[in-house]
Amino acid sequence: MNAYDFTFCNQRLSALPSGALWWPARRLLCVSDLHLCKSDRVARRSGQMLPPYETAETLARLSADVARTDPATVVCLGDSFDDLNAALSISDKDAETIATLQAGRDWIWIVGNHDPGPVEFAGSHLGEYSALVLTFRHIAGAGPDISGHYHPKHGIPGAGAARPCFMFDESRLILPAYGAYTGGLHATDPVIARLFGPKPCAILTGRKAICVPVRPSGLRARSGRSRGNRP
C-alpha cells in the first residue's frame, strides 16, 4: 500500500493516500470533511447547478478504503454533510451505500460546523470521541487531538500543484478534507500554522502519501484576507 506510517501520541498510525487515517491497533478508519450533498446545498443557496455526482464519488472512495482496511470502527470527523438540509436530500442510492458501509461496524458521526446536529443515519452522534490516548473532534482544541475542519493542502516546491494533506506535530494531527468538492487552505497559512509548533510535517495525498516538513512562512500565505501581510 502507498500509505505513510508515522507515530502520533505513541500510536502507530497510517496516512492513506486517499486522505483517510488508519489506526491498525484499534482497526479504526477516520475520514474528515466529507461534505456530502454539497451540490444540493449550492443549488438551493445560489442557483448554481454543479455536477451532482460528488456524493457518489466521495462514497466510492470511502467504500474502497473500507474494503481495503475492513475497519471495526469508522469515525467521520465532522462536516460529513454540507448542511443538515442536505442530509435530508440524499438520494436513495447514496443512502443505501452508507447503510451498506455501516453494516457490521461501529460508526461515529462527530458533529461539525456544517452539520451541527444529528443526521438521519444510524451510528452514534457525538461532539467528540476518545479511544485510548487519542481524542477525535472536528475543530482542533486543547491537544493532543485529531481533527479536521481546516482542509489543509501543501505542495513540494517545483513538483506541481498543492495537494490535500495531513498535518501533524507532537500534539496535533489535522486530516485533509476527504470530500470530492472541497478546496483547501495552504498549510503555511497563519490560520493553520498557528495551531502547530515550529516544526510541523505535512503528508501529501495522491498516488502515494508523501511526508515533508512544512517550513513556516507566513508571507507565502494567500488566503485572500488581510492577515497575509503580517509575518
Partner: peptide, 10 residues
Amino acid sequence: RQATFSSDIL
C-alpha cells in the same frame, strides 16, 4: 478559501 474549490474537480 475552504469553500472554493477548483473547477478541475468538476
